[in-house]
């Protein structure tokens, strides 16, 4: 494992911890999109089907369990926790999941490497992950005054995707036959979605003002 991959995984882990911290300690999910969280839960559930069939490493299995467990518990908190659910911006979080899920499923059925259940599900998870942040970005745009933790959560998620691209560049030059077009294209698309957010995030940081996305 190279440094970019490790840094990417750790950033991803940090993003989840920041979100859990906000929900668990402050008992608030204001500004957090349940739609995005549900899509992530689906992404991990469909991607990690191999957790029971292939053993890669202890690190790999543990991280998979963490991402599965945290994504489902975040969804549970927002939907069912008696205090947290009251802070959910239901009226603002109106992005429809199926607008993302159906095209991703169709694309996975037609564009994949092997036509097996596990492989199509894995490909679906890559496509879905690429666009799963959209409901969250739409919600941020509608929310005036984004709080620090929510801003940091999205920033860390974006940083994780960026680091994975460096990881692929590194692996491309150091490992023979490391060519994975589907993963790469989905990953680059996903990272580009954060470009606008990053711009405003750094602007607000530089000028020391509260993060606000233009409507």
């Amino acid at each position: 494992m190279n440094i970019f991959r490790l840094a990417g995984d750790m950033t991803h882990l940090a993003s989840v911890l920041v979100l859990l911290l906000k929900i668990h300690t402050i008992k608030s999910c204001a500004g957090v999109s349940l739609k995005t969280q549900e899509l992530y839960a689906l992404v991990f559930a469909t991607r990690y089907l191999d957790i029971v069939t292939d053993f890669i490493s202890v690190y790999n299995t543990v991280m998979k369990l963490i991402f599965l467990g945290s994504s489902f518990s975040i969804v549970w908190y927002i939907r069912h926790h008696r205090v947290v659910r009251r802070s959910y911006d239901k009226d603002q979080d109106t992005f429809r999941h199926y607008l993302l899920m159906i095209p991703c499923m169709l694309l996975a059925l037609f564009v994949h490497e092997k036509f097996t259940f596990k492989e199509v599900m894995w490909t679906f998870s890559l496509y879905l992950e690429a666009v799963a942040i959209l409901p969250q970005l739409v919600l941020l745009q509608r929310t005036r005054n984004i709080d620090n933790l929510t801003g940091q959560y999205v920033f860390l998620l974006g940083a994780y995707r960026g680091l994975y691209i460096f990881n692929w560049i590194y692996r491309y030059f150091t490992e023979p036959h490391f060519v994975h077009w589907i993963t790469w294209i989905a990953g680059v698309v996903q990272t580009l979605l954060y470009a606008d957010f990053f711009y405003y995030y750094f602007e607000s940081w530089k000028n020391n003002v509260r993060l606000q996305l233009p409507a």
Binding site: R5, D9, D50, D54, I56, S57, E113, R171, F178, T183
Partner: peptide
């Protein structure tokens, strides 16, 4: 290791 490149990622 024909198919594992990338599959070891999260």
């Amino acid at each position: 290791m024909e198919h594992t490149s990338g599959k070891d990622e999260l």
